[in-house]
Design a protein around this nucleic acid. Structure first.
Lengths: 196, 196
DNA sequence: GTCTATAAATGGATAGAC
DNA sequence: GTCTATCCATTTATAGAC
């Protein structure tokens, strides 16, 4: 069996897209999700703005790639949760990890969970990743007996709420972070019949 | 005792500011918090953009007035909560009212509770209203025995979280609204020792 | 693939006449 | 108080040469 010849052009193209995405993430973290232009991104990668259009059709297409990448990362973390502990521990781990995921990158949090970019809506393909991520959460919560739709909705509201408050009102601090475990216990006490 | 002579000029000035604020709110609701320009506001009140500067020093000053007005309204609602019911009922009323306040005007919710306008920070005077509003919430929660700082933080996270999820993921629907009373019970069960 | 040049529009804000 | 005129900056995106 012969290896297919490597497509060096495609590899280069992919690598440049990767560079552009990294630059966009960095700018979003430094100046806020909406605080940068395509010119800024281009300069950061040593290009002129029009050249970016070879790699992304529009600024929204770049946002869409970031959206997909953000959910891809979150999905990977949910899939990687250690399933060997008790259901309670599982939910604590998931909540702590989710909170950490949110506060470690407020711009990403804003892109994935708030709708603040005028005119941007994720493509169906990207949105599908959001759905798969929610499925991963459902798996974790179901293991603890709290996987019913209303319970999942309550979980997302509770922990996105904690993260948003942390980011908005105590950036860099831990005022709401300290409440995560307590919030999990509160959630479990309500959504499960046994506290076992 | 003679009445002080009315200052018709000042009255007119105030009335025009009122018109401008109303137009800004309307545009924010229709196109999103950041989806309008000073030109748009001017046109809505039958002016040219430079004339607005007679009434507001900058666009951020207009945002600041909206911020203050938003918290003024929320403060008024907390102060108006009927205190005659049981502590439990009181918290249910406050949570339901707060949720309603949030979802009835997503642009206002974004202005008051998320930080998404680049470069805008409320003035100290306006921020003082936010603090007073939180004091009003503390009064309500304290009456139910849940007024400790950590409990208040948990409350704000929980109900801003429910509202944000409702606005972001089911606008116009009631998927998270249905969970408000259940969330209050969950909160009270954890933060109070007796469910009496 | 990258560039220059430019379109085409938008934005906040100021100067100064009336 | 309101206007015209304009500044000055910015943006996304396209056309077309190289």
């Amino acid at each position: 069996m012969s290896e297919p010849r490597r497509d060096r052009r495609a590899e280069r193209h992919t690598a440049t897209k990767r560079e552009i995405l990294d630059a966009a993430w960095r700018l979003a973290r430094e100046r806020g999700l909406g605080g940068w232009s395509l010119r800024d991104v281009a300069e950061a990668v040593g290009m002129r703005a029009p050249s970016l259009y070879v790699y992304f059709d529009s600024k929204n297409a770049l946002y869409d790639a970031m959206f997909a990448e953000g959910y891809g990362e979150l999905l990977a973390r949910f899939d990687a949760v250690d399933r060997t502990g008790s259901p309670r521990e599982l939910v604590h781990t998931a909540a702590t990890g989710f909170f950490q995921f949110c506060v470690e990158d407020p711009a990403r949090h804003q892109l994935l969970f708030l709708r603040t970019i005028p005119g941007f809506e994720p493509s169906p393909e990207s949105y599908a990743l959001a759905v798969r991520t929610l499925d991963g959460l459902v798996d974790v919560l179901s293991a603890a007996g709290s996987g019913a739709p209303e319970q999942v909705d309550l979980w997302t509201a509770l922990f996105t709420g904690l993260a948003t408050q942390q980011i908005s009102n105590d950036p860099g601090g831990d005022r709401w972070q300290q409440l995560v475990d307590q919030a999990v216990d509160m959630f479990l006490a309500t959504t499960t019949t046994s506290t076992r």
